[in-house]
């Protein structure tokens, strides 16, 4: 019988935020249709490096396994992307797995992306409704408008757009393309627009849209094909008008 095919996976390990990172290599039995998550499950089942040393299972985040929850973002062969949709057969070997670098590290491939949720809070990314009581239907919306909004609202908060952004680093605190896109989404909604002024004020504030220098890495890294450059230009224009005309513009 021919020897079973194997896959080589190198993982950048780090036991905790204060520890020094180190690389470990694993050799995994190939099966059809494997993704990176399947490799990590194999490692958990047999946590032994390719040179036969016992180690611990690799910590990583994943939930939906179909690229809709955003959990599993990591840097794979140098590219920030979702691990569940990274199919082994399409990856160059050895496959290199690293944690995202722009977020605080928790352990191994797990990082803390809480800042994105905090920024969403700061930018009031919601439609302010009066209550959950039965007070009739929402506003009518033209299908064309719905289609634009739907495309924006598919953001899975994976953070890939922040990871690749040159303006998100230790020195700058740019909120990142995802949040700017959220501002556009909520300003588009007839009820959401009632808070447009506050959102635009926040998005002009510290770490706001002025930090963006249009590198456009974000739009290439986004797994959901969200038109981030367009959102950025749109919010930029809104912010400018808002700063000149204030609430009268709304």
């Amino acid at each position: 019988m021919a020897e079973a095919k194997t896959i080589l996976v190198r993982v950048k390990r780090q036991a905790g935020p204060q520890d020094t990172p180190q690389w470990e290599e694993f050799s995994i039995r190939w099966r059809p249709n494997m993704n990176v998550i399947a490799c990590l499950i194999d490692i958990a089942e047999n946590p032994v490096t390719s040179d036969g040393r016992k180690t611990t299972p690799v910590s990583y985040e994943a939930n939906c396994l179909e690229e809709v929850c955003g959990a599993c973002a990591m840097v794979i062969n140098g590219h920030s992307r979702q691990a569940c949709s990274a199919l082994v057969d399409h990856l160059e070997q050895p496959i290199r797995l690293e944690p995202m670098s722009k977020f605080p590290l928790v352990r191994d491939l797990v990082v803390d992306r809480q800042r994105m949720f905090n920024d969403a809070k700061r930018m009031r990314c919601w439609v302010p409704i009066d209550g959950t009581y039965a007070i009739g239907p929402g506003p009518r919306i033209a299908p064309e408008r719905q289609e634009v909004a739907y495309a924006l609202s598919r953001c899975i908060f994976c953070g890939n757009c922040l990871e690749v952004c040159p303006k998100v680093n230790e020195h700058g605190d740019f909120v990142g393309a995802a949040i700017v896109n959220q501002v556009r989404l909520f300003n588009m909604h007839p009820t959401g627009a009632m808070h447009a002024h506050e959102r635009l004020r926040a998005v002009r504030g510290p770490g706001g849209i002025q930090e963006c220098d249009n590198a456009q890495n974000c739009v290439k890294a986004c797994p959901k094909g969200i038109p981030l450059t367009e959102s950025n230009n749109d919010v930029n224009r809104q912010a400018l008008l808002d700063s000149i005309l204030g609430w009268m513009f709304h």
Binding site: V127, A134, Y150, F186, T191
Partner: peptide, 18 residues
């Protein structure tokens, strides 16, 4: 459904906006 609609869910629409 009305409540979700008010919360801004991007439901698909008919040409009349419903």
């Amino acid at each position: 459904i009305d409540l979700l609609d008010r919360m801004g869910v991007t439901f698909n629409r008919t040409p009349e906006g419903l």
